[in-house]
Nucleic acid binder design. Structure first.
Lengths: 232, 232
DNA sequence: CGCAGTTTTGATTTCTGTCAACGTCTGTGG
DNA sequence: CCACAGACGTTGACAGAAATCAAAACTGCG
């Protein structure tokens, strides 16, 4: 059921991998190494120096920063087709630590090879720039969310954003998606405590906005949730 | 007192401008247009399409996102030598609005010219990448601050970060710097209300950490402020 | 079964926002 | 030169949001 080569992978059409579609369809060109990790495993640490660039092939992961008091801030959730961070194309230090949420498979590409491919075609610079601009835009939106939006709005936006990303990659089509996040993941992403997240999610359910159980999220009232999220 | 050409400008040695040092010293190569705006003026809006890339030459500015309820989140303070956003090198839409804090002079470079220069030398891609990586790192730090640090810590870190940037550019050398920010600027940057910022700054003063008056900030107890900021 | 991780719920505390009043400063126009 | 209006900063009382603490139920899994 899971693709065994990039040439069979759906993500090849979307997100990061689409830039290398041609090269990926001829597997001998890039020949990335495949790795598999179980859920809740560390993929890389903040101070690591990565010789290779990891791309998520299946499963969910997260990138985060740890603080000295033991708490952490999640910077982004990584879905199939995502590069851990565009900065890794140029800098071997990830600057964040990366952990699997579900079972994850990822492929590691040689940085030098990717860069060579990147600059072999004139339009590549613009495509890398686009990738980078999108990453930065998401970071800026997160800053706005954390700085100026109330808790319910942040949670609603997180869920809507994830559903939109999944749909864009054809990993979901209805308003119901696989949702492996624990409440502490949500808490660490939106800057709240798990206890408070639990209470607010109960409110969402009480108001008929969502159904969330068994690692599955259904948006029951899209208009209502968008209203809570202050979107559209 | 203020330089009239890039060839005389100190910022040429640091930050963004340093990438073009050679070209800037021969003014006929890039020939940017110079503009001057008074304090509290809009430099560009979120939906604008900018034909040129603005670089701050003197004064302080800010980039921010406005929300529908009238509040705003400041994304970054722009100091002499800063590009408004590295994304502008590739994308004419700034995605944020930019406002002068003090009187500001800035130069606008033709995007096509900059890009041409950028790719005329093989090491340029790495330098642009470095610029971009730093911008992203700052955004990530801001996410961590807003998501996981208490108010006093955020304010202390903002002040320390600004002082460090000023010193790095030789715009300050002691622990006393020109500081044109109003308390509402601080509030909009760290996600608080101006009233609360006022109270916390009073605490800082009471504890002998800083002196802040007359558009000037002196860090009286660097170790103490770093401790509050949870740094070093 | 037993255990560790997760979720829920209620009581309480802490932090931050809101509101309002007042004083200061600054630039502007008469 | 003065009066004035705005913007800014400070302070206190209060309200609301989110954290903390604690206990109990639930889940999945070896």
């Amino acid at each position: 059921m899971q693709p065994t080569t990039c040439a069979e992978c759906l993500s090849r059409e979307f997100s990061f991998c689409s830039m290398f579609r041609r090269a990926l369809e001829a597997p001998h060109v890039l020949a990335p190494e495949v790795r598999t990790v179980a859920a809740r495993r560390i993929i890389c640490r903040e101070q690591d120096v990565l010789a290779d660039v990891p791309i998520i092939c299946s499963g969910w992961a997260l990138s985060a920063v740890m603080l000295s008091d033991g708490s952490r801030q999640i910077l982004s959730f990584l879905l199939p087709g995502d590069i851990v961070s565009a900065a890794l194309l140029f800098d071997p230090k990830p600057g964040c630590f990366v952990e699997s949420i579900t079972n994850v498979t990822y492929r590691t590409f040689r940085r030098a090879q990717l860069k060579q491919l990147l600059f072999s075609r004139p339009d590549m610079a613009d495509r890398v720039a686009r990738l980078w601009i999108d990453e930065k835009r998401r970071a800026d939106e997160m800053i706005v969310d954390l700085g100026r939006r109330p808790a319910t709005e942040r949670i609603a936006r997180l869920m809507l954003g994830l559903v939109a990303r999944l749909r864009h990659r054809r990993l979901a089509n209805g308003n119901e998606v696989e949702f492996p996040l624990r409440q502490h993941h949500i808490a660490d992403a939106v800057g709240l405590t798990p206890v408070h997240v639990s209470k607010l999610l109960s409110d969402f359910r009480r108001n008929g906005l969502i159904r969330l159980s068994e690692r599955s999220l259904a948006i029951l009232d899209m208009a209502g949730l968008c209203a809570v999220a202050n979107m559209r």
